[in-house]
Design a binder for these strands. Structure first.
Length: 624
DNA sequence: AAAAAAG
């Protein structure tokens, strides 16, 4: 199938004919990659001249500022200007500019798969879901214009009360996908009007807080972030939200609980502590959400999660609603997770690898001992390429160890690149300070361990550098997902050393899945190191598919369409001609576009840097 | 062997 749009000739007019353009791999016409591998180099001059030899990009067209005709993508031969005009108003209010754009062709054929019994159909708008007026008002106030694909599919399922295991690309709006239904459900709960559960004891011994909903996350910063988001969504509705995480005095958190809590966002350790102190009871729980669910169930976390979910006073599956969300969901973890679920729906939105198309991925072969100087070269090149638009661009550098983070922080700072480290050995204050300093741009380089790899939403991260590669491909997917968020472009550079050869195969497959240029040396290594068994999942299935596939409960859906179960991407695309099924146990909607990108605009980028750092501009609507 | 999560 073709994912690379070739635009009608008449729609293409160069805005800057003299300027060579960078066209990321996934936007290029197919079979036009000859000689391109070498183009992704750091030297500006070299890059320029090589890009010059590339054919003119059929770039999306700018609009506004008198740039010329807008372009609606090749799916719409008759451009639907009305649609864009309608949204432009919102965009103007949001961004203070009318430079709206679209890149719809990048979102062709995004597969959406759901399996399970009696799957509620997706919605097209927030308005048509019975979420309640207060919540709807807040959704508008947060500038959520239109649901993202994961929201379109997951929210109706959740609102229908069904258990859910959901996979969606990083940065595609998962938090809202579980927060909206939970807030809406709490608002409708009779116990909200008829008096609080726990809390407000008015002196004497502290009451036990009995939240209706629990949201668990794997890091303190992530639970903080979810808490802040949820508060915005629940503003003025009367729904009470609290957060519980470690590394900070428990007193304040307990005091908040005493005021009553409907939704508790927590990391596992502090929550267990509170339950054991009898300050929290899960006995009234109706909603359980695990964010980054595969991480929550991996080796380090599973016992704690099992303790909370199975050995405290939480109602069993079937009497509570359980929702698991992640960008990756390996089979073995799905198997563990199914213990927590009852008659659940599995939902996968986005391409197999679950890393977004908007991220340009590059891999560089670097010896361990050369990594530091290579990083400096990279940062210098990046700096010399800076444009006015990349002023606030942030760079996130991932390293393997806490010590490595500290060392690199100092080394970068000594060499003229203000950097700050973040890892689990820092006290919580320092961690949060580092993140704040990074977010604000005061320290535009963050050197972090995997504490920062999942879920954190930092809007202006333009470049993720894997200084040390992670050991498994899932972590890679999550790490690079710190860029390219909410419809923005992003660049991810991997320093691949001899040590990382076991990752060659899964990395190659992931990159191919997302239409990236794969260096030939990497392909070579992938073939040599078949990585059998070493890497958790060696095939092209990076955890985007229901592990129940092929079992009795859902075996018929493959038979129905005669497509191989192993390749969901093709499965989804090949049922394009089938009528949309919402009442069966399988449906697929390849026409769905990913992310919340209504307008994405890349104008005349000449290098991957410019693509990522927003030469011209990149604007997403309806997000933050 | 590493990171995260309680104190």
């Amino acid at each position: 199938m073709t994912r690379n749009g070739v635009f009608p000739e008449s729609t293409w007019k160069p805005t800057r004919p003299t300027r060579p353009r960078y066209l990321p791999p996934h936007l290029r016409p197919q079979n036009d990659n000859a000689g391109f591998l070498d183009n992704v180099t750091l030297t500006p001059e070299l890059t320029r001249s090589r890009f010059n030899s590339h054919q003119p990009a059929r770039s999306t067209r700018g609009r506004g500022r008198g740039r010329g005709p807008r372009f609606a993508g090749h799916r719409n031969p008759n451009w639907e200007d009305e649609k864009f005009d309608e949204l432009e108003v919102i965009d103007d209010a949001l961004e203070g500019t009318n430079e709206t754009n679209n890149n719809l062709e990048a979102y062709e054929d995004i597969p959406v798969q759901a399996s399970g019994d009696n799957i509620p159909p997706p919605v097209a708008t927030f308005a048509e879901i019975g979420l309640g007026d207060g919540l709807k008002k807040n959704i508008r106030r947060c500038n959520y214009v239109k649901p993202t694909p994961i929201q379109r599919y997951a929210i109706p399922i959740a609102v229908a009360g069904r258990d859910l295991m959901a996979c969606a690309q990083t940065g595609s709006g998962k938090t809202a996908a579980f927060c909206f239904p939970i807030i809406s459900g709490v608002l409708k709960d009779p116990s909200l009007v008829s008096g609080r559960r726990g809390g407000g004891s008015g002196g004497g011994s502290a009451a036990v807080a009995c939240p209706l909903a629990l949201i668990l996350a794997p890091t303190r910063e992530l639970s903080c972030q979810i808490f802040e988001e949820a508060k915005k969504f629940a503003d003025m509705t009367g729904v009470k939200i609290s957060v519980a995480y470690g590394g900070t005095p428990i007193y304040q958190q307990l005091r908040s609980l005493e005021k009553g809590v409907d939704i508790l966002v927590a990391t596992p350790g502090r929550l267990v502590d509170m339950i054991e102190r009898a300050r929290v009871s899960l006995g009234m729980l109706k909603y359980l959400a695990l964010d980054e669910a595969d991480r929550m169930l991996d080796m380090g976390f599973e016992p704690q999660i099992r303790k909370i979910v199975e050995q405290m006073d939480m109602p069993p599956p079937g009497t509570r609603q359980t929702m698991l969300f992640s960008a990756t969901f390996p089979d073995d973890i799905q198997r563990l997770a199914s213990d927590f679920l009852s008659d659940y729906i599995f939902l996968a939105v986005g391409r197999v690898g679950s890393s977004t198309d908007l991220i340009v991925q590059r891999v560089e072969l670097v010896q361990e001992m050369d990594k530091r100087s290579h990083l400096l070269d990279l940062l210098r090149s990046q700096r010399s390429n800076a444009t006015p638009h990349s002023k606030h661009a942030l760079t996130l550098v991932f390293v393997e160890t806490k010590r490595g983070a500290n060392e690199l922080e100092h080394w970068l700072s000594r060499n003229g690149f203000p950097a700050i480290a973040m890892h689990g050995d820092k006290v919580q204050m320092e961690r949060e300070q580092a993140l704040r300093s990074f977010k604000s741009g005061a320290t535009p380089i963050l050197v972090a361990t995997d504490v920062a790899s999942r879920g954190l939403d930092v809007p202006h991260v333009a470049h993720v550098i894997n200084f040390d590669m992670p050991k498994n491909i899932d972590d890679y997917v999550h790490r690079i997902g710190r860029t390219g968020r909410a419809g923005r472009c992003g660049l991810a550079t991997a320093f691949f050393s001899d040590k990382n050869m076991p990752l060659a195969k899964s990395l190659t497959e992931l990159m191919k899945e997302s239409n990236q240029e794969v260096p030939s040396w990497l392909v070579q290594h992938a073939e040599n190191h078949s990585a059998g068994g070493w890497v958790r999942h060696g095939g092209p299935d990076f955890g985007g598919y229901d592990f129940r596939k092929g079992t009795a409960s859902s075996s018929n859906y493959n038979d129905n369409y005669g497509v191989p179960a192993i390749d969901g991407y093709h499965a989804a695309a090949s049922v394009n001609a089938q009528p949309f099924l919402s009442s069966g146990n399988f449906y697929s909607d390849p026409s769905v576009k990913t992310g919340n990108v209504d307008y994405l605009y890349t104008d005349a980028a000449a290098t991957p840097y410019e693509y990522a750092y927003g030469y011209g501009s990149v604007i997403a609507s309806g997000w933050d």
